[in-house]
Design a protein around this nucleic acid. Structure first.
Lengths: 118, 118
DNA sequence: GTTGTGTTCAACCGAGAGGTTGAGTAAGGA
DNA sequence: TCCTTACTCAACCTCTCGGTTGAACACAAC
């Protein structure tokens, strides 16, 4: 869990943290505001925010005693880039496979159609 | 960790598993082939594959004693949709903020930054 | 049959995640 | 000054994760 990509994916693997991101997309919020909807302590929420912050997904400023949390959009690009890369490769392979299968339709010997996965 | 989105993010939070996905984007592979480049046992790799399978990222078919692993592209859409949604919202907010700040550049009194929801 | 290969299952272990409670810090308000 | 609010830090607990080893299963090949 050293690289940023791992931290980002790991951060968003938790439903509460994803929910917080959704909430922060609407506007900045304080720790207490973020904690309100959940049945966990404020301390737990503070920990969640630290995880999001370490992943670069949010930043925390200082406003009197408040620590308004702000969503950082840039990091999302890191993920989308990674995802898009392999999604496209996989889809291209899929289309190539379809073409190959179409070619050998007349000779259906033990075709072993992928996917399948029992 | 019940919903699929959590499983998918969690699965991709591990560098080895991301690497496997990258490898499978090029073409299907068996467990032993996938295990080769890493300094872990085949059993560990089998476990990783189970995680990826539970997330719907790969499927395993049956070929004699082999279990060729195949990358499933569809699930990536689930992630990209989620990500794009909040990235766009956040970016829009950012642009709105820029506009607001540009408007009040001449009057810099304790700006008390944007949206703020609350 | 027996043996070899590819893979999974089961039990275990150490580290870390997510939660708690309790105390500590920092600022505003009486 | 003292109290309250907003938050973090520290210690602890439990459960999961990623790894191991050892055994079992499924099929091929001899």
């Amino acid at each position: 869990m050293d690289d940023q990509l791992s931290r980002v994916f790991s951060a968003l693997a938790d439903p509460i943290r994803r929910d917080m991101v959704a909430r922060l997309a609407v506007g900045d919020a304080t720790v207490n505001e973020l904690a309100e909807p959940y049945s966990v302590t404020v301390q737990a929420v503070s920990k969640h925010l630290k995880v999001l912050e370490d992943a670069g997904l949010v930043s925390r400023s200082k406003q009197a005693q408040r620590r308004p949390v702000h969503l950082e959009a840039e990091v999302f690009d890191l993920m989308t880039k990674w995802i898009e890369r392999y999604r496209q490769e996989a889809e291209q392979r899929y289309q190539r496979l379809d073409a190959v299968l179409a070619e050998m339709t007349e000779q259906p010997e033990q075709t072993r159609v992928e996917g399948e996965a029992s």
